[in-house]
């Protein structure tokens, strides 16, 4: 029983991490109708920027204060993401207003390549560390209830907490602020939003910036866990079933989807995996999402898709 709960909690924590990446997808889709395949590349880019800026800042400060160096690096990486957002809007999205979803999807595939190339050219393509002082040691919990207690990674716990806070803030941002409302209007219809005076270009920069910041947070957490390297870009592929399961337009959906996928992956790997030779994590998430899709084509929390002729 203790082992089951441990796996379950491990899955929930992993799910929160997926949710963080999935959030970036949802944000951009919700507010610009673009399915942003480049989210993974943005995570990589942000994490690379963070890692290198922190290294450089630490070097410049003489290694006195890690916190200060990290703060400088965070701002620097944020600015880098602002630049990315601006460039994407200025050179790509502005020219593709009112195009079909498929075209926009493929454009973001192109952006993925550019970001991966630029990121590695500027920041290098080695493996870097991000040290933001996250505690690494695991803790035992509930020792009285189960034999041997439950092992929980403190790092995972903090990451999950950060993700939860981020989601709360984003929900407030979307529901309560004028900018959030404008974002939702743009998502519904580019032209109609423009016609009532919403500055499309500025909105897009904002939304890509927000997605960039989310990518940065995800990049820091993933990066401090796994090290910053090229494979970070592939977390996007791990997060895709999460978005699909939760619904492309729903922020809570990204969280719930993430949790379901995280738990499903871990449990299947532990209990079904040995029967078929292991390594089923990756496709199991997709198949799980597919099964959900067959019953709810718009995802768990997505807006109902209505087809008109």
């Amino acid at each position: 029983m203790g082992f089951f709960i441990e796996t379950l909690i491990g899955g929930l924590m992993a799910g929160m991490l997926y949710s963080l990446v999935a959030l970036g997808f949802v944000l951009i889709f919700k507010s610009s109708g673009v399915f942003n395949f480049a989210q993974g590349a943005m995570v990589l880019f942000a994490a690379l920027a963070m890692a290198r800026f922190s290294e450089w800042a630490n070097h410049a400060l003489g290694g006195d204060s890690l916190l200060l160096a990290n703060l400088i690096a965070f701002v620097g990486a944020g600015l880098a993401m602002l630049f990315v957002a601006w460039a994407v809007e200025r050179f790509v999205l502005r020219k593709l207003v009112n195009q079909e979803g498929a075209t926009l999807l493929m454009v973001t595939l192109g952006i993925t390549y550019v970001l991966e190339g630029v990121g590695q050219t500027i920041f290098g393509s080695e493996i870097y560390n991000i040290d933001v002082g996250m505690p690494k040691e695991p803790v035992m919990m509930l020792e009285s209830m189960f034999e041997g207690g439950i092992l929980i990674n403190k790092e995972d716990f903090i990451a999950a907490l950060i993700a939860a806070v981020l989601v709360g803030l984003l929900t407030l941002f979307f529901q309560k602020t004028p900018v959030g409302r404008a974002l939702r209007a743009v998502a519904d219809d580019h032209q109609a939003a423009q016609s009532i005076g919403i500055p499309l270009n500025r909105i897009w920069v904002i939304v890509w910036l927000v997605a960039g910041i989310v990518a940065l947070v995800a990049g820091i957490i993933w990066g401090s866990k796994l090290g910053v390297q090229f494979s970070l870009a592939t977390v996007a592929l791990r997060a895709l079933p999460v978005v699909i399961l939760g619904g492309l337009t729903s922020v809570p959906g990204a969280i719930v989807g993430g949790l379901i996928i995280g738990v499903g992956e871990k449990l299947s790997e532990v209990y079904i995996g040995p029967m078929v030779g292991g390594g089923i994590e990756i496709w199991f998430a997709y198949v799980l999402a597919l099964v959900f899709l067959l019953f709810r084509p718009q995802g768990l929390f997505g807006e109902k898709i209505i087809n008109r002729v």
């Binding site: 399915f35 979803g101 079933p241 978005v243 699909i244 997709y286 597919l290 084509p297 718009q298 995802g299």
Partner: peptide
């Protein structure tokens, strides 16, 4: 259909 299918 569409993007959901692409992921599927």
């Amino acid at each position: 259909r569409g993007l959901y299918l692409a992921v599927a």
